[in-house]
Design a protein around this nucleic acid. Structure first.
Lengths: 202, 202
DNA sequence: GTTTAATCTAACCATATGGTTAATTACCAG
DNA sequence: CTGGTAATTAACCATATGGTTAGATTAAAC
């Protein structure tokens, strides 16, 4: 079209689109090639195999998902300010890339071992574990109630992510069109903060 | 093994196992046949095609997931008793079939239109919509705070289901083995009820 | 302009995969 | 036992799919 972009990137963009939409098993190399507007052989020329290509896309995806989290998790703020910030930022992130969480979660479930391996390469997400400690600290200092930090983080993530993972199901059951659902998701920023606060406020 | 069971059922059992594990795109007819210990042609003899077979498995799965919900949702109880009952029953259900939610959600995301169609066939889940009205009623009567019923149901489901959908990811990040994670999930029954109650109690 | 390396393509290959068929076996009513 | 139907299998088929290759095209180096 407009620009004669770097073929390598073009392929990655296309692969991202197709893999995220269909998953590893459902994605076809031909579809990726078509999406990129190039010959199928190019895919192999630049990225040996489907698996190699997938690995790149997947790593980028999981990096994005976890990276987004890490970014907000350790800003130096009092816990009661930080939680709304996390919620806001994370929901905005998911609105931006609504298929990412489903894609990542599904592929991880498909090959948990392979993923565990990868996790070790990426380090143990010190910022996430640090955040858990911060929660404990905040509890001891009486900023918030003393609750299981893992449960708290799980709660926040559940409330933020699930409605996107289950979006078509929820839309179907509640009979909402996309516009209505988006409004619901915007409202959720407030709701989630409310819910969490109600639980942890002293 | 033990009994020479009905081949039809044997196939369905096997198909369930494979489809739920690998998804429609990832499942192989041969694997289903092997799992059932029969010839691949039998699959087509009893259930014309992969899609037909999948449809049966998928319908059963979604029926289970939504059926479980419906079952608890409309028991005549005061709201403050019903919610713990829902949570308990649903988590037990998911512990029992941990892969079901991921499977259902993923396949729905893969073909939302097809699913919306199916929903209409199954009726509009009057019990779910009725439950929403109950929440509104309970709010007006002052049994609970007045909150968006959709948000409330979304919250309950998010908190119950997400930790299972994200299980390998969570286990990886928090570095928990399966036993520890199961304990966490047992604890969650209390936690979720606590969280929801904190939010909606007057 | 010629050479050389990188980029790209059409055609091809081997295998996997969903599906079919013709024949065989198991089963059961008469 | 026998005839006929249902269940089952091995072999096969057509196509899809990931991957390869040999050659063409482009672009840069000299």
């Amino acid at each position: 079209m407009a620009q004669e972009r770097n073929t390598e990137e073009l392929i990655i963009e296309a692969a991202k689109k197709i893999f995220v939409k269909r998953g590893l098993a459902g994605a076809r190399m031909q579809d990726i090639a078509d999406e990129a507007g190039i010959n199928k052989a190019m895919l192999h020329y630049y990225y040996r195999s489907k698996d190699k290509l997938f690995e790149i896309v997947f790593n980028e995806a999981i990096g994005k998902v976890l990276g987004r989290l890490s970014a907000v998790l350790n800003q130096p703020m009092p816990m009661l300010e930080k939680i709304p910030a996390i919620v806001e930022s994370y929901i905005d992130g998911v609105i931006d890339a609504p298929y990412l969480p489903m894609f990542v979660l599904n592929e991880i479930n498909q090959q948990p071992e392979m993923f565990i391996q990868r996790l070790k390469t990426m380090g143990n997400f010190p910022n996430i574990l640090l955040f858990l400690k911060e929660i404990v600290e905040a509890g001891k200092q009486g900023q918030i109630k003393e609750v299981s930090p893992i449960q708290l983080l799980l709660n926040i993530l559940s409330l933020c992510i699930f409605p996107f993972v289950a979006r078509p199901l929820a839309q179907g059951i509640f009979q909402l069109d996309s516009v209505q659902y988006n409004i619901l998701m915007e409202d959720r920023k407030k709701v989630i903060t409310e819910v969490i606060f109600a639980w942890i406020k002293v």
